[in-house]
Amino acid sequence: MSGLLQALVTGLMTGGVYALLALSIALIFKTMDTVNFATASMGAFCAFLFFQVGTVLGLGWGPGLLVAALGAVALGWAVERGIVRPLGGGDLFRLVLATMGLDILLNNATQIFFGSGVQNINAPLPTGAWDVGGVTIDLTRLVILAIAVASTAAIALVLRYTNLGIGMRAFAQDPQAAALMGVPARTVSRWTWIISSLLGLVAAIMVASVSVLSVGFLQGTFISAFTAAVLGGLSSLPGAVAGGFILGVLEALSISYAPRAVTIVLPVLIILVVLMIRPAGLFGRLSAQRA
């Protein structure tokens, strides 16, 4: 019983990170109709910035975070301006492939700027663990979960209550009608990429603080987050978050109870099964009908 509970708790904690990165993927898909395969390398690059400024230069985590956030904003802006806008609303695959090219470029840039070594990020997070009725709760992971939940809530508030957020949601439903309400397509596109990039940064720092920082360290998480997003229907933001937590729990359960092979191929199995049975995802629904 406590084994099951432990798996659930661990799964929820891992799931928080998946949820955040899945949110980043789904946000792009929902508004821009494309999948950003450079999500992981963008986040990883900025996490290295955080490490470089905060630890290597010794300026502390505050300035490190600031520089990393500025880097994420600049990167999101640059990708939108330099790749997304020139490729225009054209062919979906060209944009997807361009983000794959960007992924290669960024991974190698990371290696050149920051080296191919394995670093410990030393994030200023509490360590230790609580024992609650036989279930171990790792403090670092608990804080990470809290940050993930807080970030998700922040995004939800922005989308729900700010003018920009309303514009983004309107644009996602019907770009042309949004334009007729005065919502500028460019502004929406720019901020979507910037927000997505910031989410990637947060996820990257969180993953790095419980594992290590190295070139391509976020790729595995990206595959899981992508699975979570597919599970949630790719274009549903609540679906992506729920998908992240569900996947986290499923992974933890399969680690405890299933053969190793199942754990390894779990994301892939989920993607295949979801695509074959419910291509719109577990939470995907067809948009409320339009007359």
Binding site: I83, P86, L87, R94, L97, A98, G101, L102, I104, L105, L106, N108, A109, I112
Partner: peptide, 14 residues
């Protein structure tokens, strides 16, 4: 060389 390679790819796409 891989940067050049990735960069050329993005340029080709554009």
């Amino acid at each position: 060389r891989y940067i050049i390679f990735g960069g050329v790819f993005v340029l080709i796409m554009l």
